[in-house]
Design a protein around this nucleic acid. Structure first.
Length: 620
DNA sequence: GTGTCAGTAAACAAAG
DNA sequence: CCTTTGTTTACTGACA
C-alpha cells in the first residue's frame, strides 16, 4: 500500500522528464511485487527481517556512491526503483533509506551546482513526502511489532552509511552534510525557499525519528540535546581541554580546522559551529551514530550471551558489554599508560563495540590470548600453538587496521609474515615498518618502541637473514631457522594433551583448538565450504604436536599441493584480507570470544569433555 | 627455583 | 649533525 503510494508519487512527479517516468513502471511492478508478498500490509517475514540490516547496508553503499559521484536525479531514482524490484518485501524501508539518502544527494548536488530547477525542487518535495510516508509505514510496522526496529533505526541511512563507509568517506559525508546547510543559505539568498525541504534533508530521519530517540548522552558526556554553541561557550572556557579539540584540530565532525590554541579553537567553535540548523543537524547525526553503535553493541553482546549459553558457559556480566565503550582510548593505552590493562591487550571483548568494524567481533586470537590478560600468553599462543597468523590476519585484517588493538602475535611472527607476504620474500627495514603501520593501527603509535623491537628481533633471531641487495639491505626469512626456534614439539601423547589442558587452562586449549582448526582449514581444507567441517581434522590435530601440525602444514603448503587459495607459500602470500569466507569468521568467532571470558569460567571437567564436546558442537 | 622466551629500553656504531 | 639502520646488552614478566 505504502509502496504503491510512494511509487505513485514518483510516477506523478514532474521529474519524469528526466527519464524517471520510463522507470516508474518498474517501480510499480516492484511495488506490486512487494504488495503481493504482503509486506505493505505489515506482513514482513522473519527471513526478510534477518536480511534487513545487510540489505540496508547494501542500499546505503549504493546511495553513498551516488552521493559521492554527485549524481543528481536519475541515478538515485534508478536505485530506488531497482531496489523495489530486488527487495520487494523490505522495499518500504529500503525506499525510505534511499529517499533520505537521495534527498541528501540531491541537496549535495544542489550545493555543488548551485542551481536547481523548479521541477527538481518539486521532485524533491515529492520525495520528502515519500519519505514521510515511509516513515509512517515504519512506525506502523513498529507499532504492530512486525518490525523490531530499534529506536532510531528508522534513521537507517546515515547509520548504515556509517557502517558501509570508511572513515574518510564518513568524514566526507559529514562535510557534505555541512555543505548542505550552507547551500540552503545560498538558496535562501537566491530566493529559493528550500528551508522546509532542506531541513528535512539535512536532519532528515533524525528529526523524524527523534521522538523515539532517548536523549542520549554523548560519549564526551555532553547531552546530545544541547546546542554546540551553548556547550562551547560554557564548557570549554572553564576547562583546559575540550572534547572537541585535540592535536591542534577541531574535532567537530567533518571540520578538522586547525586551531593553534584553545582560544582560537573557541573562536572557531563559536563562529563555525554556532547554534544553527547545520550544527544541530550534525549533532543529530552524531547522536544517531552513537546510538547505532550502542545498538550494534547490544546486538553483539546478545549474540555473545547466546553463544556462551550454547557453549555452557556462564555468561559474563552483560553490563560490561552494554556500556558504551571507548575502544580507542581503552585499547590504546599501553602498559605504561594504563597499568590496569596489561598491554597484552586482552581487554574485555570490547571489540564487539568497535565502532570502526561494527559488524565484526573481535579478533579470534586476541580473545584467546586474553585468558589471563597478558601478552606472553599471546606469544605462547602464537608460537607454541602456532596460531595461524595468516588466517587470523585475514579474518581480522580490517579490525587490526582500524582498531587500536595490539595484534596477538610476536614481533618475529609478524615480521616473518610481512616478509613472506611479498612476492620476492624480502623487505627492507623500512618496508617492514610500513607493513606494520599499514596493517595495524596499533603500530601507528609508539613508533620508537615497536620499531626498536622490530630491529631487535631482526638482529636477534637467526631466522631473519640480512641480505645485501643492489638497492641496499633487505631482510629475508630462513624458514628452517624459524622452525628451529620453535619450542620442542608436543607429541601426540594424550598425557601432553592433558597437561596442555590442565596446565594452560581452558582458554589455551581453545587457542590450540582454534589454531588447529584454522591450521587444518588452512592446509587441508581451503575450501570455504569445508571450513566449517574442518573441525574433525582439528580434533585430530589436538592429538598431535601442534608444531608438527604447523610444520606439516607448512611443508605441505610449500609443496604447493594444497589449495591455491591459501597455498603455502604462504600463507602469507595469498592472504585474502578482505574477502575471506564468512564461514571461517563465523567459525573462529565463537571460540575466540569464548576464550575471552574464560576468566569467569571454571575449568571444564576433563579433556574428554574438551575433545569431544566442543568439537562436536562445532561440527553441529 | 631455574631456564627459556619475548618485550622493552637503551647504548653504541656505521652509513647515508 | 641528524636520521636511519643494525647490533648488543640488560632487565622484566610469564611460563614450563
Amino acid at each position: 500500500m505504502m509502496v504503491e503510494s510512494a511509487t505513485e508519487t514518483i510516477r506523478t512527479t514532474p521529474s519524469n522528464q528526466n527519464g524517471v517516468s520510463s522507470l516508474s513502471s518498474q517501480s510499480d511492478g516492484g511495488g506490486r511485487e512487494g504488495g503481493s508478498n504482503g509486506d505493505t500490509n505489515g506482513e514482513i517475514s522473519p527471513v526478510d527481517l534477518l536480511h534487513l540490516q545487510q540489505q540496508q547496508v547494501c542500499v546505503c553503499v549504493c546511495v553513498c556512491v551516488l552521493i559521492k559521484a554527485n549524481e543528481c536525479l536519475v541515478f538515485p531514482a534508478l536505485s530506488i526503483l531497482k531496489l523495489s524490484k530486488f527487495f520487494p518485501l523490505t522495499f518500504p524501508i529500503h525506499l525510505f533509506c534511499c529517499v533520505t539518502c537521495f534527498s541528501l544527494s540531491l541537496s549535495l548536488s544542489c550545493s555543488q551546482q548551485q542551481q536547481l530547477g523548479n521541477k527538481q525542487l518539486a521532485f524533491q518535495q515529492q520525495l520528502i513526502q515519500m519519505q514521510q510516508l515511509q516513515q509512517q509505514h515504519i512506525l506502523n510496522l513498529q507499532r504492530q511489532g512486525l518490525v523490531n526496529l530499534q529506536p532510531g533505526q528508522g534513521a537507517v541511512p546515515i547509520q548504515s552509511l556509517q557502517q558501509a563507509m570508511c572513515p574518510t568517506d564518513l568524514q566526507q559525508l559529514w562535510k557534505d552534510v555541512a555543505g548542505v546547510q550552507s547551500t540552503e543559505e545560498v538558496m535562501k539568498h537566491e530566493g529559493l525557499d528550500l528551508t522546509t525541504n532542506s531541513s528535512n534533508t539535512t536532519s532528515y530521519s533524525a528529526s523524524k525519528v527523534s521522538p523515539q530517540i532517548p536523549h542520549h548522552t554523548l560519549p564526551n558526556g555532553q547531552n546530545s540535546v544541547h546546542t554546540p554553541k551553548r556547550d562551547s561557550s560554557t564548557h570549554e572556557e572553564h576547562t583546559a581541554s575540550h572534547p572537541l579539540y585535540g592535536h591542534g584540530e577541531c574535532k567537530w565532525p567533518g571540520c578538522e580546522a586547525l586551531c593553534e590554541d584553545m582560544g582560537q579553537f573557541i573562536k572557531h567553535l563559536n563562529s563555525e559551529h554556532a547554534l544553527d540548523d547545520r550544527s544541530t543537524a550534525q549533532c543529530r547525526v552524531q547522536m544517531q551514530v552513537v546510538q547505532q553503535l550502542e545498538i550494534q553493541l547490544a546486538k553483539e553482546s546478545e549474540r555473545l550471551q547466546a553463544m556462551m549459553a550454547h557453549l555452557h558457559m556462564r555468561p559474563s556480566e552483560p553490563k560490561h558489554f552494554n556500556q558504551p565503550l571507548n575502544l580507542a582510548s581503552s585499547m590504546s593505552l599501553s602498559k605504561r599508560e594504563s597499568e590496569g590493562f596489561p598491554e597484552g591487550l586482552p581487554h574485555p571483548p570490547t571489540s564487539a563495540a568497535t565502532p570502526i568494524t561494527p559488524m565484526r567481533q573481535g579478533p579470534s586470537v586476541i580473545s584467546s590470548s586474553s585468558l589471563h590478560g597478558v601478552g606472553h600468553i599471546r606469544r605462547r599462543n602464537s608460537d607454541k600453538f602456532c596460531t595461524p597468523i595468516a588466517s587470523e590476519l585475514a579474518q581480522n585484517c580490517e579490525f587490526y587496521k582500524n582498531a587500536d588493538v595490539r595484534p596477538p602475535f610476536t614481533y618475529a611472527s609478524l615480521i616473518r609474515h610481512a616478509i613472506l607476504e611479498t612476492s620476492d620474500r624480502q623487505l627492507t627495514l623500512n618496508e617492514i615498518y610500513n607493513w606494520f603501520t599499514r596493517m595495524f593501527a596499533y603500530f601507528r603509535r609508539n613508533t620508537a618502541t615497536w620499531k626498536n623491537a622490530v630491529r631487535h628481533n631482526l638482529s636477534l633471531h637467526k631466522c631473519f637473514v640480512r641480505v645485501e641487495n643492489v638497492k641496499g639491505a633487505v631482510w629475508t626469512v630462513d624458514e628452517v631457522e624459524y622452525q628451529k626456534r620453535r619450542p620442542p614439539k608436543m607429541t601426540g601423547s594424550p598425557t601432553l594433551v592433558k597437561n596442555m589442558i590442565s596446565g594452560l587452562g581452558f582458554g589455551s586449549l581453545n587457542a590450540s583448538y582454534q589454531a588447529a582448526l584454522a591450521e587444518s582449514s588452512l592446509g587441508l581444507l581451503n575450501s570455504p565450504t569445508l571450513m566449517n567441517n574442518s573441525t574433525g581434522a582439528s580434533l585430530n590435530m589436538l592429538h598431535i604436536g601442534h608444531d608438527d601440525v604447523s610444520s606439516t602444514v607448512e611443508q605441505v603448503n610449500s609443496n604447493g599441493s594444497c589449495s591455491p587459495g591459501l597455498s603455502p607459500q604462504q600463507y602469507g602470500h595469498q592472504v585474502h584480507v578482505k574477502e575471506e569466507p564468512a564461514e571461517m569468521e563465523e567459525d573462529s568467532r565463537p571460540m575466540s570470544l569464548m576464550a575471552s571470558v574464560t576468566q569467569n569460567l571454571s575449568m571444564p571437567g576433563d579433556e574428554r569433555d574438551m575433545e569431544e564436546e566442543l568439537p562436536t558442537e562445532e561440527l553441529e
